[in-house]
Design a protein around this nucleic acid. Structure first.
Length: 225
DNA sequence: GAGTTTGAAACT
DNA sequence: CAGTTTCAAACTC
């Protein structure tokens, strides 16, 4: 393959020999990248697909090297990043310190102006609290923050058609898991079949969900029929 | 949809 | 390590 063709990859504007590329750039949920993954342009950490260790597929990126056709270049880029930072491809959200239940951002954020209450903040975007490893200024994304609570209580479900997640606290999650475990143990004690055990656990999960929603509606003053 | 703001990542 | 630049997403109008 000629060098120019290699460099232009599957970009239909730059490489007329890849007319099918136009069909492939249909990324709806993933981001759109101008740089893609290029051996010349190692700023490829801007690409979430690459950062997550995934191949680009159905993205709109131009001159993309993050695909099976450029496996060698991709491998070299991965190696470069791992040499520089062995944790480069680890997920950003980890479990925090040993024994911690709540997840936290592995590197922490560096927000200066958003108060960590907008999606610019990686912690806020991942729905985790900022922690001691964050270097943010004017942080309002902590458990007792009144600003955060106000934001969480905002009825944004009215325009999205969804309910806020504030009803599902970690305590609720833990309680639900405990109920499901107890149900599983009971099924085991009674020597139920796997099929029946699954059914019992699912039914218990349904009851838990109902109770969560019931409590949430009541606390918000909704009428329950 | 265009322009602005923001912060992560890369670079110096 | 700190300051600067680049980039793409979030946000605003």
């Amino acid at each position: 393959m000629p060098m120019q063709q290699m460099e232009n990859g599957r970009d239909p504007e730059r490489n007329p020999d890849y007319p099918e590329a136009a069909k492939m750039n249909s990324c709806q949920t993933s981001p759109t990248y101008k740089t893609g993954l290029s051996t010349e342009n190692l700023q490829n950490k801007y690409c979430d697909c690459f950062a997550n260790g995934d191949f680009c597929s159905n993205c709109n990126c131009n001159n993309c090297y993050n695909n099976i056709l450029h496996e060698i270049e991709r491998f070299q880029a991965i190696k470069t990043y791992l040499d520089r930072n062995p944790e480069a491809f680890q997920p950003k959200i980890g479990k925090g310190k040993l024994g911690d239940i709540k997840p936290r951002h592995n590197k922490g954020c560096n927000c200066k102006r958003s108060g960590c209450l907008k999606n610019y903040c990686e912690c806020y975007e991942a729905k985790v609290m900022c922690s001691s490893i964050c270097k943010c200024i004017g942080c309002k994304n902590y458990e007792e923050s009144p600003d955060r609570k106000t934001l969480m209580d905002m009825p944004h479900y009215s325009d999205t058609g969804r309910f806020p997640l504030t009803c599902i606290s970690w305590e609720v999650v833990e309680a639900t898991c405990a109920c499901l475990l107890a149900q599983g143990e009971e099924a085991e004690k009674e020597d139920c079949s796997i099929c029946l055990a699954e059914q019992m656990i699912l039914e218990e999960f349904g009851r838990c969900l109902s109770q969560i929603l019931y409590s949430e509606f009541q606390s918000k003053g909704f009428q329950i029929e």
